[in-house]
Each structure stands twice: as C-alpha cells, then as structure tokens.
Design a protein around this nucleic acid. Sequence first.
RNA 1: GCGGAUGUGGCGGAAUUGGUAGACGCGCUGGCUUCAGGUGCCAGUGGCCUUACGGCCGUGGAGGUUCGAGUCCUCUCAUCCGCACCA
Length: 863
Amino acid sequence: MTTDRYNPREAEPRWQKVWDDKDLYASNTTPDNEKQPYYVLEMFPYPSGRIHMGHVRNYTMGDVVARYKRAKGFEVLHPMGWDAFGMPAENAAMKNKTHPKSWTYENIATMRDQLKSMGLSIDWSREFATCDVEYYGQQQKMFLDFLKHDLVYRKNAKVNWDPVDMTVLANEQVIDGKGWRSGAEVEQRELTQWFFKITDFADELLQAIDELDEWPDKVKLMQSNWIGRSRGAKISFPFVKGDGVKEDKLVCFSTRPDTLYGASFMAIAAEHPISLELAKNNPKLDAFIKECRKIGTSAADIETAEKQGFDLGLTVAHPFIEGKELPVYAANFVLMDYGTGAVFGCPAHDQRDLDFARKYALEVTSVVATPEAPDTPVEVADIAYVDDGVLVNSGPMSGKRKDDAINTAIDVLAERGLAEEEINFRLRDWGLSRQRYWGCPIPVVHCDDCGVVPEKEENLPVELPDDVTFDVPGNPLDRHPTWRDVPCPSCGKPAKRETDTMDTFVDSSWYFARFVTPTAENPTIPEAANKWLPVDQYIGGIEHAILHLLYSRFFARAMSIGGHMDIKEPFKGLFTQGMVVHETYGSQGMGWFQPSELDIREADGKRVATRLDNGEEVPIGGIEKMSKSKRNTVDPDEIIATYGADTARWFMLSDSPPDRDVEWTDAGAEGAHRFVQRVWRLVATWSGELAKIDLPETSNTNDVRKITHKTLKAIGEDIERLGFNRAIARIYEYVNTLSSVKADDADAEQKAALKEGLSVLVQCIAPMMPHLAEQCWEAMGGKGLVSEQAWPQFNADLAKDDVITMPIQINGKKRADLEVSPDANKDEIEAATLQLDVVVKYLDGKTPKKIIVVPKRIVNVVV
RNA sequence: GCGGAUGUGGCGGAAUUGGUAGACGCGCUGGCUUCAGGUGCCAGUGGCCUUACGGCCGUGGAGGUUCGAGUCCUCUCAUCCGCACCA
C-alpha cells in the first residue's frame, strides 16, 4: 500500500483556521465557569523584528503545557503580548530615519504572523503591547497610586554621561569607558531620579523565597544572594588625626567584627562625604576621586578594576587596642551605596583587603586559627583566610568560633557605645527614571511654586507625543516645543512635565496581571486577578532569574498595597529554559557567515564549510548563542516553510533537557521531520484496516496494550514535570513498538490493541505537534478535533510490570540478571539469587559476607 | 571581582535522585528494497583484549566516603549565564 507524504504546508494553515473558526483557545473567564483555572505564561517577547529559534523553543514549551492542561480539563489562560518599549526602537529611529512607534508596531505585526504560523494555542483576543497607550496609561495610574502609598521617592543617583552627545548612556552603550557613538570618555553625573522602595520589602522578599517550592533552586539561591541579607555591626572609630574633618568619628559596617584585632587600615568610598570634603582643599585627592568616577557605574567594572587607594592623612583609634591608630584611605573598591560607605580593612581575612594591603605595604595580622591547631594563627601570604576558625590574640574574642566571637565583639563594643548590631541588605532601591523617549512617561509635573506634583488622575494617560525627531542625540521630550508645558495640577500656574520615562522593567512587572482583564478600566479587576493569579507556570530564560522576577515580586506586593489584587507572589511555578545555540562560521578576520551562505559537508571525516558564492573555505567556529552579530541564526520562517511548524516544535523539544542549551543542527531538524512522516505513515497504513475493529475488551492484555498504558502513564508524568525530551524519547520507543506489529501476522486482539495504541499515540503527540495530530485524528476517523479531546486515562493494572529484571552484583560488579515478580520480598529475592549458577560459582561453597537486597533495584553479594 | 550553573560515546543527551552507565535521537558501517532521492526496512555501533565464552577499563582531572558513586564530600581545570540603564 502506498501512502502520500504528509504535507505540512497544506495541512498546518488549514488546521490553524479550523481552530480559529471554533475559537478553541479563548479562555472563558466568567465567574460561573466551574472548571479549574490554569494560567500558563511564557515571558513575552521584545518586538525586535523577527522571531528567533529561542522564541520557538520558549513558546512551544508553554504551548505543550497549555494543550496538555486543557486536555486534562482545566480552563487554561494562555495569552501573548509585547514588551514593546525600549532602546532598540530609538536606535532604529536614529539609524533608519523611522519612528520608534511605527518601527515597533511593524515588528509586532511581522512577529505576530510568525508566531501564528507556529500553531500556538494562544488566546489572541487578549493581546496588547506595553507601548499601547491603554496599557501604559494604566501603569501611570499605578505609579500615582504607589506615590500615594509612599512606595516611590526621588533622590540623586549617578548616570553615565556622554559629554559630546550630551546624553545619558546605558551601561551597554559604554564601551571601554567611552560612548558608543561619540567615542568620548564617559563621565558620571548626578541626576535627581525616581526610585521604587523595593528595599522596604527586602526581608519579606527574602523570606518568601522559601515558599516558592515550584521554582528552580538555583534561581532562589541567586535571588537570596542578590538581596544579600547580612548581619553585622556598625562600628565607630574615633578620629585621632582628624584635620579638616567635621565628624569626630568614622562609622563603618562590618560583617566580621570578630576580626577587629587584625584590622590595619580604614577605607572609605571615594564618594564618601569625608573624602569629598577633604578634596575641596586637596587637588590630588580631587583628581583621585575623578579618576574613580571614570571606572563606570557597573558593578563588574568597579570590582574588576585594580584596587587603588589614596592616603587621606587621617587616623582613627582602634577600639580594642590601646594606642593603636589605623590610617584612613579613600579606596575605589568601597561602595558608597552599601553599608556606611566605609570599612575597616582586615587583610588576613578578606581578599580585597589583602590585595589592597599588599599594594600599599600595610600590616597583615592573622587572628584566626584552624580548629586543628587552635593556638597558632594561620599564615597568610597571597590568599586571605576567610573560613570559620578559632580567634586568637583577640582579647575578649580569643578562643571563640566565628559566630560566637561576632556576638562578643558586638556586645563588648556596644557597652562602650562604639557599636550596634545591624542587618544590612545588598539590595538597592530600584531606580526607574530613564532619560529617553520610548517609554512610559512618568506622570508628574514640576511647578516652581508647588514643587513635584502628581498629575491628576483624570488627566491620564500622559500620552507620548508622536511629533518627535531623532536627528540629534538626547531625549526628544526635552526639546519638544509644547509637550512639556502644562498647568500645575495643584495651583494651575504654568508648569513643566517630567520628561523622564520609566524603566522598561516596570512594564514587564505587571503585564501578567493585565492579561486577566486586558481591557478593564483600571489596571486590574481585583476579583478576577485573585482568581487567576498567581501564574501557575511561567516559562522564560535564566537571564531574567534576578531582576525581572524580583521586580515582579515587588510589584505584586506594591499592587496589593494599592488594592489592585491580593496576590503577593506572581509566579507559582517557574521554569527557566536554555538557549538555542548554533555553530559559527568565519571570522579570524574574514567576518561571520550565515549557514545559508555556505555549503557545509563532510570530507575525509572532517566537516568543511565553503562559501557558495566563491568557493572559499571558511573556518567552522564554536557553538554559541544564536545572535545577529555572529550571524549564526536560523530563521524560523524558513524552517517552517521547509518542514512545517510541527517539525520545528518537535526538534526544539526533543534533543536537550528543556533547561539546558539546545544546539540547532540541520541533521536534527531532518531527523524530526522524518519522524513526522513516520507517524503519518504508521497511521495512514492502518487507518483503513482498523476502521472496522472494535476497541479492546478489558480482558485484552497483550503486550501492545500493556505498553500503551505504561507509556501513557510515563508521558503524563514527564509532561507534568516539563521533561519534554524524556516524553519524546518514550514516544519514539512507543512508535517503534507499534511499528513492529505487522498486518500479516497480527491477530484480532493485536489489531484492537493497535487501534487503541494509535489513538493514544496521536493524543500524546498532540500537545507537541498539534497539526499532524489533527491530520492523523481525522484519518483515523476520530470524533471532533483531537485538540478538543480529554487526555486519555491509563489503566494502572495494565501499566504495571508482571516481572522485573534485577541486576545481580558480586562485589559491586554486575554478573547476572534475575527475573522476579515486582512484589517479591527481600528473602525471596535473596533465596533466588543464591540459586543462580553464576553466584554459586563465585561463592565456591563459601558463605557470602553480606548480601544487600534492594527490592525492585539491585542485589549485591559481597564475597 | 562577586553570585549562579554546566562538564557522560564521533555528536545531542538518558540514568526512577546512591543501585545494570550510554535509553532515545543524530551520525557512521554493512545488507536489503526502490521509479529517483537527502526515501523505506533489517543488523551493528564506548574503548581495549579474546576464534568464542568472557574479561578489563570507562561519566573533565586528582583524592575521599560507601557493599555500591555519573550522582555525595574535598581540591582542581574548562566553559557558559547574571551583576542593578540590554531586554
């Protein structure tokens, strides 16, 4: 019998239209719907132009969950939107003389079509972009709300300033300390900016991490470390030599007050008030401070910069050691934002302090001993000793372990009024001001008389003006002829609008809540939000492990305070998927090449790439994240046009565990496509013959039927835990089993089991390859659409093994197999083991020293 | 620099979380089929030794714990991600 090949190009749009016409994926969120709600969400895309394979992978995973849960009887909410504000739109506007708005919406239109061609089960009626005025207007309402509840404030903060372009630069736009366009040396400038008080929630955000039991441990750990709660002491060091300083003491924060006897210097931030004050009369110090400002604002830059200090000529008294004075330095590695902006340096027990001490020839005094040799301090050369130990030569702390010694140090100093215990957080408040056009305007007005005044709610939304130009650098809102001019909402006199817009992280901190009621007149409808939130399963990249997820957690709390909902944790289940990577071709001076520009083939066991245009050989480079700059991207459109969406979806799920990187290879895509055809062939071959057969009786317990139920059980478990690659491996095995049934020698029972098996197969692949599944379902004469079917139930008796094979080890090495009933107890297994020829041979008449029997697992005979 | 991860055949990876290492797929080898194919089917495929039976070695590297380690511990090497104005 010949069967045609399955043609996805014809079938996929057809089934998409069928789903569309039936409005199959719209969520019914009316209150009288008794189905259990399930909210699955993938991180929404930035509309950069076209979708990439990373999107295909991300949205396929979410779609599998959505389709599976729908089949399991849940009312599934699976929406899509666009994280549409941001810098690239302005860059495009500058480069291509277009407008950020038209650039963004055109990209959205393209990408929407691309996503639709993937056959995702999304409720498109809920779609919005964060740059829709209907969305950011609601965001402005919330901002005013937060302002009212004292969750927002203004303070000075540093920005990267390009003195040539006269504009603020993002960290990304600073390359080796220079502006990316002008090439000018970047300066730091202080601006008054808006901040969310996320630090008010530091403790709560930290403690609540414990309850996020459906989050990956690594993300929870990263968030904990980011919040960085540390217990320590604020310690005062009275000045001995304090010329030119108003204060009589220097206050520092330390988490290791136990090591005070090892202190040999003090270091304060270059921006510390004392340092700034002294710089007024000290040009060298002033120059040093300016030099420190050049390092940049990013943490990585500051901490990798070579340690530099400036001796301020001051000294302070050591609080424990009578007569000892410590010199005070301004240093580039001390952060003004953390603690008090001052530390005491204990070089023996802190690596940064040690590096600094070696550079400036300061004392290194070890005051910690290992528990093994508790009397002699460890010797410190180039590596500081930071582990727990026993304090020595440390007055009241001597002989105590770290934690105990810390308490003692605080207690003793506190009695003398020199210290108090303090809890410090690494977390800083969230600066949300951006000096840019393409973002949500901050709805406040600056009035000469009234100061900073919130815009009236009835005047919202504060809409971005369309008539702006990007021919010169800087924020177009600042130079707009009229937009800024508004009456003061308080006194009515002429005033000026705030021209800063919001960080795009604000937009993405609550979009999941808006999807529940995307057209509501307020940001949310609390009853609906409370019913649908938190998101049951959130899926996205690990790169968002800290900022986006932490900001959203803060936002949920702030929104609760504002009465927008009563949910504090926005994401119940979190899954972080890996990247799509691909081989790179070229460079070493010749530039990068796209796979489509090359002929890549195997020659003499080596893969060789040559240019299609001139035959020149191009080196094959490393496997890296797909990126435009390396030109190692694969366009999903082309893949879908060649193989169909199901092949792309299947491949993205099949090869690697979903949380790891997956390498795109043509061979892999072809393999996935062969499987698509194989399933179709299997179904098409049998569909005629099986049409007449009744479904199996319960008494039918042949092997095919047992494997069907075993597979069904396993696949359900795999999908529940998002083990898509494992589910797929099982489906491959299952297809191998079903394919082994041959028409010529199959009896009636086998055919009946096969009929059931094929139906189960099609339902199992439906979440991953929905179009093929519909086509197969139709061919098999299934009722309705497979997308509408309930998930098949497995029969627990059939899914159970009658007999299991246990490995028998002798001295830890496998020597035999033993077939036993899965219910066999230890004694039965041991008895059967001792009967085995191999065991008898190895024992050679002796009694074994030990027999370890782990039922259902293993037997180990120790001779 | 700090924080987080990863490392298993020629390749992607599996291993019920301390219990048969290499499931499944790709690739490769041999055979068959075919109207063409980058099609389909069958068999084989970690390394070394062995005619065979079988044996030894093997999860980045070095140690350790255990009846038993890819999995736990210590050290070490390599690669990747995040670091607060990229999204």
